[in-house]
Write a protein that binds this DNA or RNA. Sequence first.
DNA 1: TAGTGGTCTAGACCACGTT
DNA 2: ACGTGGTCTAGACCACTAG
Lengths: 254, 254
Amino acid sequence: MALKPKSKTNSKQKVSASFSPLYKQIKELLLQSLETGEFKPGTMIPSEHDLADRFQVSQGTVRKAIDELAAENVLLRRQGKGTFVATHHEPSVRYRFLRLSADGQVEVKRTHSTILSCERLSPTEEQQKIFELSSSDEVVCIKRVMNFSNRPTVYEEIYLPAVLFKGLTFDLLTHEKMPLYGLFESHFGVQLLRCDEKLRAVSAPDSIAKLLHVAVGSPLLSIERIAYTFGEKAVEIRTGFYVTEHYYYRNSLN
Amino acid sequence: MALKPKSKTNSKQKVSASFSPLYKQIKELLLQSLETGEFKPGTMIPSEHDLADRFQVSQGTVRKAIDELAAENVLLRRQGKGTFVATHHEPSVRYRFLRLSADGQVEVKRTHSTILSCERLSPTEEQQKIFELSSSDEVVCIKRVMNFSNRPTVYEEIYLPAVLFKGLTFDLLTHEKMPLYGLFESHFGVQLLRCDEKLRAVSAPDSIAKLLHVAVGSPLLSIERIAYTFGEKAVEIRTGFYVTEHYYYRNSLN
DNA sequence: TAGTGGTCTAGACCACGTT
DNA sequence: ACGTGGTCTAGACCACTAG
């Protein structure tokens, strides 16, 4: 991983072993500025021209770096206005990680969450591995039910590394009306960028069936999610149980 | 939608109403060549330089058109070798539409399909709408069970517009060992490019439970898929029921 | 050595949004 | 009118693959 060259004519820093193109290096620099908070969610970053000046590369190279970040939904381009840092507060991308649709419409509306509990626990072995914690660290465990159109539809158990979410309490969760990932961003400076999910069909156990107003043994869509922030660092483990009688999980493959 | 200009200095064809950049127009031309079969699956298309000559644009413009098609998995770039038309026969992308993983490993292996039936039917109203057929047209209905590691895991009902799959018979399906989408490509010239899925958890009805060796009422992952070829034309409707005891459906969001 | 895709540049001009 | 992202060009050079 070589550093960026100062002038173009001298850019002979390229060796065959682990060659990294200039625009990838620029991309890393931009990611650093995002991670350190120099560019904050919702704000505009400097213009391509300014960034080209700052990094001493051509505008096209900056452009290609931004292209990739925009494709990953880390940045958002708006022609004529500027390039902005993605935020979970904008309505357009607010529920980008909730791929649930109603049988008729495209999007889910009128959602309401009931927080059941929020406690500090010792992490399981699996959680220690994923979060890179030791057994003496703690995790926050949130349990909640989400209603869509007044129907209880999702039961979730959410695990977070406690060290990143110091002031997270039951009260905060019940009083804040913003979506959870917006709360993470605004109150704790944790930006969720990407997540992996594992989907299964399972039978509703007694406890969950009661909460979701379905019969014991009813089929539920189980979604295990691991969410990541900068540097592929895992910051959330979430298991959700979805009633899919009136809603479905949509996916597009190519 | 303006045509491409012959020379760069005269390229004043751009009007504000429904402006289409040059590279999008080149992309459409490439898609036409793919659809008509000028570029066949698995073969190499002309070099960027040659295409630039042919379309009388710069290499960078051709490049951007190819970039988009590569991002959509329609084309496949291989540095130093060329750009190739995607095919469902290559091992690397063979199961790109089967997002099932085993609890341990990343990929599924040792799959085997048992064809249960293959018949011509009248299309339902929904099928008529999706395939743009009339009630006098026919659809082919295939039913099959897929085994992974000798476990019956998936039951599928597949519907196809009969007019596109003339020689498709039970015998052909049982004798051909290639994956279904490879068969579509090689025998019928139908290239599947993209699909939309709706996922739900459902209870196994009697008939399906027997086929999958699970108890009646067991939870199954239901996947309704509509698959498309060029021009967003739907060419397959598939409903699958997955036993997710040892396998899961993986997804990545950002 | 030749051919292909991949990177990078400098500059021109266009489309969009705001002032 | 101005600033932003978006498009396009012509040309140079680099990295990878194959004969």
